[in-house]
């Protein structure tokens, strides 16, 4: 469903932010992307919603391929991928309702349908009572729940979460993870990049370790996950 084939990304002053990556992510998987700061996690995730295109290699997302994709097709792809960020990327001066409705407005749905759907989504994240509150007035944990509701609005086949708990306290982080797990249980793939080893240490999900823009061999990482984590934590 998501495939990286020989992917290299060169930024203008950082050549090889990721180098020759080969990865295959299956439909319905919950995948954790782990690695120290600057290792290339965000770069990999940005490739999935084609915020950047690879310098070398081909990314394939569902039926879209980075090879000769048009801006219009990229927009279409983004409407089928849910994204969640560390800094939430909510439109701060809009209400909770309007933020969650945004992908549906972009899709051109009818007002009544949008209303019903947003109602369900806000109920799902326990924020119905805050529907008309401005996003800027929310707590950080609430903001991230709203962002996840927005990412889920179009019922995407995959949710990409780039350090979604990076700004949250323990309890809020746990809430966000539970929410993502619930989404995963309903059949949506989730790819989450994180630093927070404490949060995910007991989860059974597939882990991909990145260091210096390269994926560490699975045999080593699977064989010694605990040490690997400790090692990574120390290098930070």
């Amino acid at each position: 469903m998501i495939q990286f084939s020989n992917i290299t990304v060169n930024y203008s002053y950082v050549p090889g932010a990721v180098k020759d990556i080969n990865l295959k992510l299956r439909k319905g998987d919950f995948t954790l992307l782990l690695g120290p700061t600057g290792s290339g996690k965000s770069t990999l995730l940005r490739l999935i919603y084609m915020d950047i295109l690879p310098s070398e290699g081909i990314v394939t997302i569902d039926k879209w391929s980075s090879y000769r994709i048009t801006p219009r097709q990229i927009n279409l792809l983004r409407r089928n991928v849910g994204v969640v960020f560390q800094d939430f990327k909510l439109i701060e001066n809009m209400s909770v309702y309007e933020n969650v409705a945004m992908p549906l407005i972009i899709e051109g749905y009818r007002r009544r349908y949008i209303k019903r759907l947003v109602h369900i989504l806000l109920d799902e994240i326990n924020m119905l009572q805050s529907a008309n509150q401005r996003a800027s007035t929310l707590s950080l944990g609430e903001k991230q729940r709203v962002a996840i509701a927005r990412a889920m609005a179009k019922n995407p086949f995959v949710i990409i979460a780039d350090e979604p708990t990076g700004n949250l306290d323990r309890e809020a982080s746990q809430n966000v993870l539970s929410l993502l797990e619930r989404i995963h249980q309903n059949g949506t793939s989730v790819i989450m990049a994180t630093h927070d080893y404490e949060l995910i240490k007991d989860t059974p999900y597939r882990r991909i370790y990145i260091e210096n823009g390269q994926v560490l061999p699975p045999a080593r990482t699977i064989a010694t996950p605990k040490t690997r984590i400790n090692l990574l934590t120390q290098t930070e």
């Binding site: 919603y49 915020d51 219009r72 927009n75 792809l77 983004r78 409407r79 990327k89 945004m102 972009i106």
Partner: peptide, 16 residues
């Protein structure tokens, strides 16, 4: 500009 960048990530077309 923030709203524009966010809408772009959500797949909004040029015209919208």
């Amino acid at each position: 500009r923030r709203q524009i960048a966010i809408m772009n990530i959500l797949g909004a077309g040029n015209l919208l």
